[in-house]
């Protein structure tokens, strides 16, 4: 399954490191990354992929939640399907 991660919060060191390490531990392959800073506000959008037969998106959401809390950012993980449905014909 392809997923979109959005990570938002106040900028500080190590956010990308924490998120990408967490994803690597969960065997989520990162396909694409985009990150910007807007007035000190960190916004990162990642596209990832994982094997649905081995774990569910809910497993990944649950595992990433403490990582988001520790890094003081909000991590949302959603199926790419909702964005494709809404924005592509």
């Amino acid at each position: 399954m392809k997923v979109i991660l959005t990570v938002t919060g106040l900028d500080h060191e190590g956010i990308i490191a924490a998120v990408s390490t967490g994803l690597a531990d969960l065997h989520v392959n990162i396909l694409n990354v985009s990150q910007t800073l807007m007035e000190g506000y960190f916004t990162m959008i990642m596209q990832g992929e994982f094997d649905e037969s081995k774990q569910t998106i809910e497993d990944i959401q649950a595992a990433m939640e403490p990582i988001g809390q520790a890094a003081q950012v909000e991590i949302r993980i959603q199926s790419e399907a909702i964005f494709e449905a809404m924005h592509t014909l």
Binding site: I4, L31, N32, T43, I45, F83, E84, H87
Partner: peptide, 13 residues
């Protein structure tokens, strides 16, 4: 990947 990040952020908003 989805065309633009703006679309993703729009959906989340």
């Amino acid at each position: 990947m989805i065309d633009t990040n703006a679309n993703i952020l729009e959906t989340i908003q």
